[in-house]
Amino acid sequence: MKPQLRQTLDGGKKNSLTDGEFAGAQENKSWNPPSLNREEYDDIVGIDLPALEDYLRPANDTWIDGRIVTLLSHYYVPNVPFDVQVAAHEDWVRLLSPFPQWAIEAAVDEWLSRPGRQKPMPGDIIAACRWRVEEPALNLKLLRKLVARYERELPGGRT
């Protein structure tokens, strides 16, 4: 993504604070996407949007399945019936399925590198995934707003 486009998208964001601490970026609802020229539009539609959509594409369930089996193998839990293990595992896969592979992998690695022996719950990994995809997802939303404005302004509508 070109620096000028990044600056444009930054105008559509505002920092969120929780108890005086930075809590991430949110969409600035009063942001009015600027007009694009044809070259900028073509770059966004042909390069930036597909790249960001690919970056945020959810991991496939088979990969998530294997990653969770590996993660949970670090934690011994005696006498859990097999059907309960399967049901719990299905919860993990279902809850992590919206996230890209890179975000899940980073969240799991972060958890495993922590000191202590606490077994993660799905919400622990989900929170770490959300934090990682928050800004790219916001960028994607703002890019789509830029494109929509350009297409609305075309004579006769979208190309």
Rank of each mutant, 00 (worst) to 15 (best):
Q4S: 15
L5C: 10
R6S: 13
R6Y: 09
Q7C: 04
Q7L: 14
G11Q: 15
K13D: 03
N15V: 08
S16C: 08
L17S: 08
G24Q: 03
E27G: 03
E27Q: 13
N28Q: 14
N32P: 00
N32S: 13
P33I: 07
P33R: 06
S35F: 09
R38E: 11
E40P: 01
E40Q: 15
D43A: 14
I47C: 11
P50M: 10
P50S: 13
R57T: 13
R57K: 15
R57E: 08
D61M: 06
D61I: 03
D61N: 12
D61Y: 01
W63E: 08
I64R: 02
D65K: 02
G66R: 07
R67M: 09
I68N: 00
I68S: 00
Y76L: 09
P78R: 13
N79G: 03
N79E: 13
V80E: 15
A88S: 11
A88L: 04
D91A: 00
W92K: 01
W92D: 00
R94S: 13
P98G: 07
F99H: 07
F99E: 03
W102Y: 12
A103Q: 04
E105N: 06
V108L: 01
V108Y: 00
D109T: 04
D109Q: 05
L112Q: 13
R114F: 03
R114A: 15
K119H: 04
P120S: 04
P122C: 04
G123N: 10
I125M: 02
I126V: 15
A127M: 08
A127N: 10
C129G: 04
R132G: 02
E134L: 11
E134C: 04
E135W: 01
E135I: 11
P136N: 10
L138E: 07
L138K: 07
K141F: 09
L143T: 09
L143F: 09
R144G: 08
R144C: 04
K145H: 03
V147T: 12
R149D: 05
Y150I: 06
P155K: 05
G157E: 05
T159R: 14
